[in-house]
Simulated assay, not measured.
Amino acid sequence: MKKINIVAIASTFLIYSCGDHPKQKNPLGEPDVIAVKTAPLSSYTVPGTIHASGLVSTENEANYAFKIGGVISRVFVEEGQFFRKGQVLATLNVTEIAAGLAQSDLGVVKAQRDYDRAINLYRDSVFTLEQLQNTRTALDLARKSKEAVAFNERYAKIYAASDGFVTKKIASEGEVVAGGMPVLLTNSTVANGSYILKVGVTDLEWSAINVGQSAKVSLDGYIGQQFDATVSKKLRSADREIGSFQVELRLKLDKVTPPVGMFGKAEIATDSDGNAVIIPYSSLVEADGDKGFIYTTVGSDKVKKIPVHILRFENKRVYLRDRLEGIVQIVVSNSAFLNEQSIIKIIK
């Protein structure tokens, strides 16, 4: 009997513990009040400035190679070393080439001797005209063959086509290379006027940029310095690897010579000045890509959620595409804690 009573008491307690209970309410019976700060919304005249980044390079890049294959005899420059136009950069071992040139000389001498003998025999009516013409053709072929070998012999050396510097040394002395295989990767320079910054921009930015527009460039290797630049070229196709459009800025570096590949940031001034709405970064909520939300006040204690489209971020400010007509005040603090049912208290 006692066992039955214990089970009944336990069941009653379990049913009571699982039952609904009234939820606790605010002791005063009122919703929480969230203190916020507000700021007036206004538009500003914003200069049409495009921010982009890229790497330093030069206008002309060259991959030097030998025309013919062979064994590299000497490489006279190292990576990072400057050179002058006409300077010998590398040579092949010319033992095989010299032998080929000597062989072609002997071939020309023999063909000339055969032709001279054919002329005498033709005069004596021993050779026919066809035989004479054949020896003449053999002589011409031997001479052309010698010219080809001599041409290849001249290109057993690599000469600098312009002033520049070596960015990468691919092959070294003693290596066997094939004809046309790059040996040295170089960038040409004309004083400092050939340095450029290649930056990637979006479709809309590309259309807003024109050749000749001015820009300001800062390089990571020269902290605190800013260099003038101008837009020198707009490439007509997108980069296949990153998908952005490439724009080249010609740098005015004075006496500075940055290495190729240094990272730089550019501010390109365009002609598309106009009015834009600027809001504090703290007022933006639920930002996703170019979309987000802000809160505006309704009366003295309510808020309304407004969708906005983001143009760009700059430091602690956000540029909007929207004009936000009819909105006077926006919430600039504690926006993350709000919803459209919130009760607010505006503080200064």
Rank of each mutant, 00 (worst) to 15 (best):
S104T: 04
K85E: 12
V71M: 10
I68S: 14
F83G: 00
E59M: 07
K85F: 02
T45I: 15
E79H: 00
V46S: 12
I72E: 06
T49P: 06
D105F: 08
V75A: 08
G86E: 04
L101Y: 06
V71H: 06
L101S: 12
I50P: 01
T45N: 14
S53Y: 11
H51M: 12
T49R: 11
I97E: 09
K110I: 14
I68W: 01
R84V: 06
T91K: 06
V109I: 15
V109L: 15
V46G: 09
A39L: 13
V75M: 03
K85L: 03
E79Q: 08
S57L: 05
G107E: 15
P47T: 03
L41V: 02
L55F: 14
A62M: 04
L101M: 08
L106D: 00
E59Q: 11
D105P: 11
D105H: 09
S104Y: 03
F66R: 07
R84G: 05
I97Y: 07
V56C: 09
T58F: 00
G107S: 15
N63V: 02
F82V: 04
T95Q: 11
K110C: 08
T58A: 10
T91G: 01
Q112A: 10
K85P: 03
E61C: 06
I97Q: 14
R74M: 10
F82S: 10
L106N: 02
V71T: 14
A111H: 05
F83C: 00
V88K: 09
